[in-house]
Every structure is written in C-alpha cells, then in structure tokens.
Simulated assay, not measured.
Amino acid sequence: MHSKALWSLGVLLVAVGVAAHAVGWDALLWFPRWALDSLFWVPLALMDAIAAAPLTFAVIALGVVLMVASRIIGRGRGP
C-alpha cells in the first residue's frame, strides 16, 4: 500500500472510532444493519411471490430469456 492510502485508512479508522465513542456502536451501525436487512428481505419476498404464483413467474422468466437471447443474436449482426 502507498503511504497516502495508509494515511487515508488511518484517518477513516480514527473518525469511526471517535463517532463510535460519541454515539455508540448501536447507533453508528444502524444504517448498515438496516441496509443488510433490506437486501435479505428482497430475495425472501421474491421467493414467496414465486411460490404463490409459479406459472406467472415462469412466463415472466421465459420472456426475460427470450429478450436476452434476442439481444445476444442482434449483437452478432453488423450495422
């Protein structure tokens, strides 16, 4: 690592440490925890929706596959 990168990393760690001391780790990590919970919520909701209406999602998936195939085939041709 370059000295500038080490300096920047040190400044970042000092800032995080001061912020954690001032507001506490729970308050400081609230947003990252919320973001991770949101990221895990989306796939679980999608799985529930697929289980509720599998035929609908099969039709949608087939449409997406055909669209991607069309795009790939279209790129092979020159303008």
Rank of each mutant, 00 (worst) to 15 (best):
A5T: 14
F31D: 00
S8N: 15
M47K: 00
D26L: 09
P79Y: 12
P32E: 13
L55H: 04
V14E: 14
H21W: 15
V18F: 11
I72A: 05
A45S: 10
L29M: 07
L62F: 04
W25T: 15
L62I: 02
V11Y: 02
R33C: 05
L9Y: 06
V64I: 13
W25V: 15
A27T: 15
A52D: 13
S3A: 08
A69M: 11
W7R: 10
P43L: 08
A27P: 01
S3Y: 07
G78S: 13
W7M: 13
R77L: 02
W30Y: 14
M47S: 02
A5H: 05
L9E: 12
A49E: 02
L6Y: 05
V18Q: 06
V64C: 08
F40D: 11
L44R: 15
R33H: 10
F57Q: 00
V18A: 14
V65C: 06
V16I: 15
L44M: 13
V65H: 06
H21G: 15
W30K: 11
A45D: 13
I60L: 05
L6W: 11
G78P: 04
D37Y: 10
S38W: 11
G17I: 09
V64H: 10
P54S: 08
I60W: 01
G74H: 12
F40K: 02
F57Y: 08
H2D: 15
S70F: 15
F57R: 00
P79M: 11
W41S: 01
L9P: 02
V23W: 11
I72P: 00
P79E: 14
G78W: 11
T56H: 02
A53P: 00
L28W: 10
V65K: 00
D37W: 08
L6D: 03
L28E: 07
V23H: 13
H2F: 14
D48K: 06
I50C: 06
A51Y: 07
L36W: 15
V59I: 09
P32K: 07
A53H: 11
L9A: 12
A5Y: 10
G76E: 04
V11L: 13
G76R: 06
M67E: 12
L66E: 02
G24V: 03
V18S: 10
M47A: 10
P54D: 11
A49T: 01
H21T: 07
L55M: 09
A45I: 04
S8F: 05
V23G: 04
L44E: 15
P79G: 14
V68C: 06
A45R: 12
L46M: 05
A35S: 11
A27I: 13
F57C: 00
L66R: 07
W34E: 08
S38M: 03
T56N: 03
V23D: 08
K4W: 14
A52N: 05
I60S: 01
A58G: 07
H2I: 09
A19T: 10
T56G: 05
R77Y: 02
W7T: 08
W25Y: 09
V42A: 08
L66M: 10
V68K: 06
L6R: 08
A51M: 03
V14Y: 08
S3I: 01
L12S: 14
A53F: 07
P54W: 07
G76I: 03
L13E: 12
W34R: 02
G74N: 12
P54K: 05
A61N: 08
S70I: 03
I50S: 00
A51H: 03
R71K: 14
